[in-house]
Amino acid sequence: MDRPGFTASLVAGGVAGVSVDLILFPLDTIKTRLQSPQGFYKAGGFYGVYAGVPSTAIGSFPNAAAFFVTYEYVKWILHTDSSSYLMPVTHMLAASVGEVVACLIRVPSEVVKQRAQVSASSGTFHIFSNILCQEGIQGLYRGYKSTVLREALWSWRQDRVVDSWQAAVCGAFAGGFAAAVTTPLDVAKTRIMLAKAGSSTASGNILSALHAVWRTQGLSGLFAGVFPRMAAISLGGFIFLGVYDQTRSFLLELGRESP
């Protein structure tokens, strides 16, 4: 990838990620509290829906930028002709690799954020310090496997077409559908991240976490928070891909006009 394209992807991905995460943060908080083992109202209900936003604000730009830089770079390496039948596979592979890289930044931010969302009285830095003191670096990566698996299963949504509005609409519909299908994995991820240190759930076993939810809450537990999650990801797909395309196009045009 040429230097202007690399820089444009970096900045556009970061701007798009920050826009989505901050605008839709209340929906994410409600979803997390619905999935919390302590129950929605005990986790905070509708109170303090911006709890944990500092963690998101700090991690959002590098997380989104890492995804899109990797995404564009893998597509550039594979260099599949736009008319080739392999183009969808190229997009899927690039998005999957992008998610694996982005999760290295996303998961620590997500762990801190989710714990703050269900404990609004505790500050972000206090939660971060406690995790490091009690569990070390591995505590910040609790739920990494479930997060990567969840993201990889719907990474195909990143297949974009030329126009920004088309990319946004495709992102919204594909993201909403994928959000519903992958909700059980999201529930498992939330339970793993919120579990007490040393518990069986905290070990990160996805199947064990899903079985525990099924045993205590049944199907409704596995799909807890599905509607706010679908709404957030559908709107997020629209905003994210639309903002990314527009920002990247603007930056590339600006680069061409500069001497």
Rank of each mutant, 00 (worst) to 15 (best):
S146K: 00
V118L: 13
S109K: 03
L104A: 13
F125K: 10
S109N: 05
L140T: 05
Q166K: 08
Q134D: 13
S109T: 11
L140I: 08
Q134C: 12
S164P: 06
L104E: 04
D163W: 10
R157Y: 04
R115G: 06
V101F: 06
W156F: 13
S164H: 12
A116Q: 07
L132R: 11
W165C: 13
G171R: 04
Q117R: 11
K145M: 09
S146D: 01
A167C: 13
R150I: 00
V161D: 14
Q114R: 15
A120M: 13
R115F: 07
S155K: 01
W156N: 07
G171E: 01
N130F: 09
E135H: 12
I131D: 02
S119M: 07
W156G: 15
R160V: 11
C170K: 14
A120R: 15
H126Q: 15
A167L: 06
A167T: 12
R150T: 09
F125H: 11
I137A: 10
P108T: 12
E135L: 10
S155M: 09
S155H: 02
W154P: 00
Q166N: 13
Q158V: 05
A102C: 07
V162P: 04
L149T: 07
S164A: 14
R160P: 01
I137P: 00
L153K: 07
I127V: 13
H126C: 09
S109L: 05
S155D: 06
V169N: 05
Q158M: 09
L149D: 02
P108D: 06
K145S: 11
L132Y: 08
L149E: 02
A116M: 11
G143C: 02
A168R: 03
Q114E: 15
C133W: 11
S155Q: 06
R142D: 01
I137V: 14
Q138N: 08
S121P: 04
R115W: 09
D163I: 06
A152I: 14
G139A: 15
V169K: 02
Q134W: 02
G123N: 07
A168S: 14
Q134L: 09
V107S: 02
C103V: 11
S119P: 00
V148Q: 00
L153N: 08
V161E: 14
W154N: 03
W156K: 05
V112H: 05
R157P: 00
A168Y: 05
I131E: 05
R150Y: 01
A120D: 08
V107E: 00
V101Y: 03
W165D: 10
C133D: 15
R115T: 05
W156C: 09
L149N: 06
D163G: 08
H126D: 13
S121M: 08
N130Q: 13
R150G: 06
Y144C: 00
A152W: 04
V112E: 01
S122L: 13
V107T: 06
Q117P: 04
S129R: 12
R142A: 08
K145C: 09
L149W: 04
V101S: 01
P108A: 08
Q166A: 10
A172W: 02
R115P: 02
